[in-house]
Write a protein that binds this DNA or RNA. Structure first.
Length: 575
DNA sequence: GCCGTTTTCGGCCCGACTGTTTTCAGTCG
């Protein structure tokens, strides 16, 4: 069973306990355990074999036993009891914005509303407005939210959110009353999926900012409007929250609205032990009289310094050890996009790209790259017009010619060779060895079982003919699930055979995930960050890959293509 | 339910907004 399945059961248990009115801290415990399991980079079942699960944060004796029970029977006692006492569809009600556990419970006990369909019927009948604690407005809001849920639900890929957020933050900066405006939230942390977009603004005239905000292009509907906080729905169904604070509180506000929740919970515990408390308005002494100015608030650096910590980059704020690292002054010097010297994975009109070798090379050079590798598809990718040996030979000549003709960038010969069903490569080894750089990728038969897929990848990695494993898990963001394999075994093989793992930065993939990249780097396997560009505009997507790398705590030395070409090749030679 | 160089018991982050209330509960992030 996948980790996501275990996590789902724990998270559902949390929601069911909440609805049945159980202890809120018990709820939180299940939520935290669910997060831990979800973020675990290796399979939970492997972790069980390696030792007691209680070593994982937020998992104690009781939940560890529940997880074993899930493995053995697919479920556990508490979960079964809760499911029997409540209708199946009740968890769906919690998806409706504005409905929490208390309201869901009331709907169920008084109106026998147990799923979205019956909720909708109750709304149309007008019976909801009669319930104590409910009214006409609540009923209207529920009707609107059901409709919105139907149109669009859940988290969506980061690149979509960035496209929506960028123009809005620019528009805010152009507003007269705005001194500073930044995007916060999970967009700033570069989480791979995003539910809503947060904007933080410094201004001495909040009312003017709110007025400008609700009238911006792209703002479709106002959900809530106050003097410091306004929530709207943007085109594309993203919810956006705007917070406006005084300029002297901008740092603490930006920090607050960047999150993550888990990072803040840890920081606040720490603050408490120091006699301090943290809010969006600053870090305050607990025993100071009302109205005393904060100890820190102007910048994020000030906020962290007040807690005895170095400034922590947003991408690391997930409570995965960054606070201890900041305390010990042992934070990594994270990679940035400027460190990337070349792109090792891209396509041209020879296979399924839109531009020629020369066009891609010039665009890459203008983007700032020192070298690129042209890696078109191999013959097995028929729909992508993949290259067989004869066409590849001609392609090699064309690449050399382009390299001669174009100044300011080195153009290297490569291929993205298919790793076939049985783990063999789609082109002869001696031909591959004539190339400068070979990316090996899985493009078909992705539904193989874990064991078969693992053996398939191991065979390719140990072939001696590939330099990097391309888009290692095959997932498409919001589309195709990653395929399953033994990641630890792959790491060990990459280490042994000197194969790098790719962080594929293209907006639709973002593959590897940050947890995996971090694990690989810790084991000593180098990463490469590539865009897999199919057009001249693709190179800018490197930023998405760099975001993943930063979330994985990677420094420049973890990433091969931060090196000049010759130095990079030295690693492959074992030098 | 989890956790612990102040603790194995007693804590567990903090504040804004809405809607339904006549001072606050519920929800959200």
């Amino acid at each position: 069973m996948r980790n996501a399945e275990y996590a789902r059961l724990l998270a559902q248990t949390a929601a069911l306990i909440e609805i049945s009115g159980g202890n809120v801290y018990r709820v939180r415990a299940f939520q935290k355990a669910a997060r831990t399991v979800e973020k675990l980079p290796i399979s939970l079942e492997e972790a069980m074999n390696d030792g007691p699960l209680t070593r994982l944060p937020g998992i104690g004796k009781s939940i560890a036993a529940d997880l074993v029970s899930i493995r053995d029977s697919g479920s556990f006692e508490l979960y079964n009891e809760l499911r029997q006492s409540l209708p199946d569809g009740i968890l769906g009600l919690m998806q409706v914005q504005g409905l929490g556990p208390k309201k869901v419970k009331a709907l169920y006990t008084h109106l026998e509303v147990g799923d979205l369909a019956s909720l909708e019927k109750a709304v149309e009948d007008g019976t909801i407005a009669q319930l104590p604690g409910f009214g006409a407005k609540t009923q209207d809001n529920i009707r609107r939210e059901i409709a919105r849920l139907r149109r669009q639900a859940g988290r969506r890929p980061l690149p979509m959110a960035i496209m929506v957020a960028g123009p809005i933050v620019e528009a805010l900066r152009a507003v007269e009353a705005v001194e500073r405006a930044e995007v916060g939230g999970s967009v700033r942390r570069r989480r791979e999926t995003v539910k809503d977009v947060d904007f933080v603004v410094a201004s001495t005239d909040p009312e003017a900012v709110m007025e400008a905000f609700v009238n911006l292009d792209g703002v479709r509907e106002v959900i809530a409007r106050g003097s410091t906080k306004t929530s709207v729905i943007l085109d594309g169904e993203f919810q956006a929250d705007l917070r406006v604070v005084a300029p002297e509180a901008f740092g603490s506000a930006l920090h607050h609205f960047t999150g993550s929740k888990e990072h803040h919970v840890e920081l606040r515990k720490r603050a408490k032990s120091m006699g301090l408390k943290i809010s969006e308005y600053g870090v305050f002494k607990v025993d100071a009289p009302e109205g005393t100015p904060p100890v820190a608030s102007r910048t994020e650096q000030d906020v962290y310094a007040a807690l005895g910590l170095a400034w922590i980059p947003p991408e690391m704020r997930e409570n995965t050890g960054e606070i201890a690292a900041a305390e010990a002054d042992a934070l990594p010097s994270l990679l940035s996009a400027a460190d990337i010297q070349g792109d090792l994975h891209m396509h041209t009109t020879a296979s399924d790209g839109s531009h020629t070798i020369a066009q891609m090379a010039e665009a890459a050079r203008d983007f700032g790259h020192k070298y690129i590798v042209i890696t078109d598809h191999s013959q097995a990718s028929v729909v992508a017009n993949g290259l067989g040996p004869d066409r590849l030979r001609q392609h090699m000549i064309d690449i050399d010619a382009a390299n001669e003709a174009i100044d300011g960038i080195e153009i290297k010969k490569g291929i993205e060779v298919d790793i076939l069903k049985d783990g063999s490569l789609d082109l002869p080894g001696d031909l591959l060895d004539e190339l400068d750089y070979v990316v090996g990728s899985v493009h078909a038969s992705m539904k193989q079982d874990r064991q078969t897929m693992t053996e398939r990848l191991l065979k390719a990695i140990s072939s001696g003919h590939i330099h990097a494993l391309g888009h290692p898990t095959g997932r498409l963001l919001g589309g195709r699930d990653p395929f399953e394999f033994d990641f630890q075994a792959i790491i060990q093989a990459c280490l042994k055979h000197r194969v790098a793992l790719e962080i594929n930065a293209s907006a639709g993939r973002m593959d590897l995930k940050d947890e995996h990249a971090r694990l690989a780097a810790q084991a000593g396997v180098p990463l490469v960050i590539n865009t897999d560009s199919h057009t001249t505009t693709g190179f800018a997507q490197i930023h998405f890959g760099v975001g993943i790398a930063r979330r994985a705590w990677l420094e420049p030395h973890h990433v091969l293509n931060t090196l000049p070409w010759d130095e990079m090749m030295n690693w492959y030679k074992g030098a």
